[in-house]
Design a protein around this nucleic acid. Sequence first.
DNA 1: GTATTTGCAAATGATTTGCAGTGCT
DNA 2: AGCACTGCAAATCATTTGCAAATAC
Lengths: 134, 134
Amino acid sequence: MKHQQLLQHHQLKATPQRIAIIELMHHAGHISIDDLYRDIREKFASISLATLYKNVHSMMSVNLIREVKISGQKAKYEIEKMPHAHVVCKACGELKDIAFDPAVLMQETIRESDYAAEEVSIVISGICPQCQKI
Amino acid sequence: MKHQQLLQHHQLKATPQRIAIIELMHHAGHISIDDLYRDIREKFASISLATLYKNVHSMMSVNLIREVKISGQKAKYEIEKMPHAHVVCKACGELKDIAFDPAVLMQETIRESDYAAEEVSIVISGICPQCQKI
DNA sequence: GTATTTGCAAATGATTTGCAGTGCT
DNA sequence: AGCACTGCAAATCATTTGCAAATAC
């Protein structure tokens, strides 16, 4: 079981609830707490929102997942993966990844601010191809 | 009065509360609703949080100010200005601007995703020079 | 003069907490 | 066995709404 090990490698116990969270997140790409709650109840009718919040926090604190904050929407969560940027549609709300190498940006940051840069979060908003047609 | 006109050019009535919001935002660079509330009460002891929320929303809807969402913090607000990126310190929470031209990133977005890119939000997190010393 | 805005209080919505029972390793 | 995790209910915190009085233009 791949997801089980993913949790254990991050020193979190592999409960079925957590495995389901990772499965859903992996499948959706990005998911909000509410959608996660709606979907996960199909497997765990009795899971509580509190458990989701707690688990999302513990997974974030070990960098297994990452929070994507978007203006005008509730936060979404994704499994930690290769650096990338996000595009979000202002019309329909769709969120997707695009390839982007943040190396240059991090260099620039260090040069300009002396910060020890660790993470980069990029959200580009605009209108998706579908909504442009309407 | 510069701020008065700024409001009027965006078709918002120049109430003293709004002018004070812009003054504080201009002075702070980036400010959260709570800090804004704390500071603005020195001038308007009776201002309500509801008024702040309403004004922040109306100013956002005319693009006079912009929301900066940061993982692990409450949103901050800034006056709309030249495109730039943000660096935030994971230790002390300090937020500052750094110069960054998003043109390349927007081109890339269009090429990769066919989105009509309108806005770019960049938040780089790391450790600020002060906190590195500790 | 009129439409907008303010400030209050109350409603709503989101997230966190405490705790007893359960389950992973 | 032992500690971490779950689920519930309640507490807390954040944001929005409705409305009457005040104010910008």
